[in-house]
Design a binder for these strands. Structure first.
Lengths: 222, 222, 222, 222
DNA sequence: GATGAATGAGGGTTCATTCAT
DNA sequence: TATGAATGAACCCTCATTCAT
């Protein structure tokens, strides 16, 4: 809407506009993290951002779009925080990844409870964003374990795994974080083993067995 | 609200009132099964029930209450359909239970997708109803397996298990039911094994190990 | 919406509702007679009617519908007031008709200026209502003169005649009614003669010539 | 606003500014020709002109002023196209004038339907522009026929004539131009005769009778 | 118990205009 | 002169609830 694709350096005014946009996005994240979609008014967001409410339709495209954008934004942040590394043994990298994921949720508890771990509220665009994020997370783990994420036998089990992680994280946060993060990570890895075992039951492949062994290795060590 | 606790036989008017109440509840189930909470108006429900919309606040206590009641009602139906039997080996009873659960979901796809497998929408009361149902389901399975549902080490894993089941059912329904129900049941039992194993990791007990063996028995047999 | 087709006598409440509907319609007529469509708010109308503004969407269907309804209503009143009689010589009946028409406009100057003599404002539905009324008026006069209103050669001239009447009435009202109504009626009859003569030019028929003679008769007498 | 009255040659910037002004005016003509006043936004016009919408208030004085200016502009074009010539017999000149008028309408159908033949929309300034144009047209014809346009007896009839022309043109355009332009011109002349006859009825003068004879001459010739 | 007319708070959006750059 | 970000008033509509009948 503002920033052209030309290489021209952004003028001061364009920067100011981007700043305003950011203010709105941050305010939206804040509001939607604390109250359900329907309980947040555009006035709340604008007030929280300290700008006129009309700007909400100027920079975004109404409340729904802004909500979807906020969801995408928090997802972006989460992914950036839990980015898989490329060094070290697979199991270690997996552990680091899940730990970072949990740490992010813990550090953004409100957002986690209301935007990340909560299924589609309000709008279709947001629902798609949820799906995309979940899919993306599954793909990342499959890549790490050398699995084909498009294997139809993996689809359901991995979704189950993903939902189990979300729900345990949610309840963990809501009940005062009764365990160490490391314990949750172990639990998630156990869930992951279960999911892969379930995939094996549906249609066994060497890759699945290998992945299972990698995960079990960690198990016997503990 | 109407029916007194006295043993007096209900008058004709009271019966008619109960009838109306039922019509509203059924209509609510229908509407909330097809559209998200916010998209359903009390007018929709009343029209669908064929009564005046003012009755909604008379028999129930506004839209939110009715929604919560609808959630409770569908849960009641689900529990009735998937009631655990008392005869036969544990694993078999579990299998029958899960099969019935899935069959119910399949027979009430809309309600399943929008009322049973969907997390808190709209209102707190409904959120509590969701929680209650989930807790209840977990308790039932724990009883069956001889586990103490109040064991804190079971709390999180079982919630994860429960969420995994819901999500796999949801995706199974939405993607054209790509597997036999029996295959899903096996998957759920595998998830359950994983959950109990995770509980063992947190705090092993003999009961957990026994339950695990019961489940594994089925595994080796297959 | 309210009144069923059954023969049942309307209850008191239904009568009260109709009353409210009438209040809104009258208020709408008042408002739209004084300010252009865009300058009238639903709040104005509701306030003027002394009811809650929500009723506007309850009884009618939003502002546009109400506007269209108001247009139809004033047209109905005008037609009722200028209804053609069936007795007496043709020319006399025509004169009575036009006189009554003008008298109505004079008695409802605001409505005349803004609702009757003004072309489509605001909405399509209203535009159609204008067209319908104009068509209706032309048909009535054609019937009186024994002309076929569907004769294509009459279409354009009669529309021209109709527009000429509206405009002269409009200007007459706006400039302080500088002539007697009878003088305007004569002018309109002269216009009508011109229109029929124009139709003759396009495609002469005996009926047209006869009508012309009827009108001229009045002329030679004066 | 820009161009000073001094003889100084316009700078390049002033020329560019005039250029922008023209672009806006053309865009406004285009937009207002296609949609009713209220449906056109300043953003539409600016986008269509390819300039920033802020310029609209800079070069003109808001949306209403621009609308009035667009109306004046199209009227200017129409008058230029239908300018009365000074050679030849009166009736011929009249015919040429009306023909050119109709040809202009036919060549600018959208503008004709929405800006020229449509009564006051949106704003007072535009309404006055309409009035001025109509008056101007009547004056021109009166001059041609040697009539005193300020004769009060002519006022109403000539307005009726003018409205009849507009309406027949409007309907002719909207119904697929079912007649030759020459036929419409004849019709208009018939209307004009009627108007002058009506004026005679109100207050006969030699000038009116002469004009009538001039027009009738054409009639008997055809 | 049942009706549905009435209420009115509250929402999101649009949009002409202003003004700093 | 040109830009377009910012403003905020104003609008229409939806809808859960109330309550007289």
């Amino acid at each position: 809407m503002t920033q052209s694709v030309t290489g021209k350096p952004p003028t001061r005014r364009q920067l100011a506009a981007q700043e305003t946009r950011q203010k709105l996005l941050r305010a939206a994240l804040e509001c939607f993290s604390q109250r359900p979609y329907a309980d947040v008014t555009v006035g709340d967001i604008a007030r929280s951002a300290g700008v006129a409410h009309g700007l909400l339709s100027h920079h975004f495209n109404g409340k729904e779009s802004l909500y979807a954008e906020a969801v995408r934004e928090i997802d972006r942040q989460l992914r950036a925080a839990a980015k898989l590394t490329t060094d070290g043994p697979v199991l270690e990298r997996l552990r680091r990844h899940l730990t970072a994921h949990l740490e992010f949720l813990a550090e953004h508890e409100d957002a986690a409870l209301n935007l990340i771990l909560r299924r589609a509220e309000g709008t279709d665009a947001a629902g798609e964003a949820f799906e995309a994020t979940r899919r993306e997370g599954i793909h990342a783990i499959c890549r790490l374990l050398g699995l084909d994420a498009d294997d139809p036998a993996l689809e359901l089990p991995m979704r189950g795994y993903s939902a189990a992680c979300d729900e345990t994280a949610r309840h963990w946060l809501r009940s005062g974080r009764p365990h160490e993060i490391a314990a949750l990570v172990d639990m998630w890895i156990t869930f992951l083993s279960g999911a892969i075992r379930a995939a094996c039951d549906l249609a066994p492949t060497p890759a699945l067995n290998e992945a299972l062994e990698v995960l079990q290795a960690g198990r016997s060590r503990s």
